[in-house]
Amino acid sequence: MAMAGKRPPRRPNLQAATRVVNKADGAGGASTSKRSLGDQWRAYLANHRRVARESLQGLFKVWLASAMTWLVIGIAMALPTMLYLILSNASTLSGDWDGKPRISIYLQESVSEADGRGFAQQLLADELVVAVDYVSPSAALAEFTQRSGFGDVLRSLDRNPLPAVITIEPGVSQTGQLKPLVARLEAEAMIASVSFDLAWMERLFAILDLAERFVTALGGFLALGVLLVIGNTIRLAIENRRAEIEVVKLVGGTDSFVRRPFLYLGFWYGLGGALMAWVLVGASLVFLSAPIEMLLASYQGDFLVIGLSGGESLLLLLLGSGLGILGAALAVGRHLRQIEPS
């Protein structure tokens, strides 16, 4: 650009301060372009660190209000997390079962082992039967003793109360298709009773599946709630800093520069909320696990209530901070554009 002739760009007789101001580069040049990319990158990172630190400090400065927001987010996130844990524990409980139906046939006491095995082989001929497993009364007793811990009681009896059992693995899994087979078996003279455990298992799994969907839906709703809470909190923060935003835009702050503190704010809200949820879930588990374990021990040996794994905890925190950033981004996108210096 051509300088207007009248005055030279610099004159020697300026005040010392002027010289300091203009020592580094000639007056007026776009000084930004004179710094190396590395310097600019470092300054950019430094700005991120500073904004992250300052926004967190800002939250602690009004710690009571921040704690309330964190608690609201924490509760909203703890609820589906708890339900998720209940479900995953329930799945562990029913995990022994591979999802295929089993038909258990209890033989009459009078049936000898040889006859029982022969009968089992006959059953294999049925096209609906894939595999059979004959368990003799003594084998059944041994297994029961080992599994239940009631060995002493059983040993004190003078005879084995358990019948021989044939377990059938059918080739189909629909209850309806198996009904004729079950009816035929019940008619056999050798058989004392037939237990067909599919129906309630099917129901249990249907219930678990339903519960899973319910938790997913609830989680979705509550995530939306978290987004709204954070979005609204950020909107208020934007409104409070309106003057600052105008000045920053006036002196050439880019959109991303203006956005940055609010995104970090959302991040801290989300992360803090997730931490709060983590603590709430942990505390509830401590509170609940002893009675649950006692209850389940009375049914089926050892059971340990499983808490959140390291990976799941990390996921919770990531989810929280992600929701925070997203909520902030939505609020910022809606409101920041409207604030222009005027």
Binding site: V20, V21, T32, R42, A43, Y44, V247, V251, G252, T254
Partner: peptide
């Protein structure tokens, strides 16, 4: 310091320039 922070100056440079401008 605001315009310098926006333009991405290092803190040391920011301090130097702000003091010079305030002195001016």
């Amino acid at each position: 310091a605001l315009p310098l922070t926006i333009a991405g100056y290092q803190p040391r440079e920011v301090g130097r320039r702000v003091r010079a401008a305030l002195a001016k």
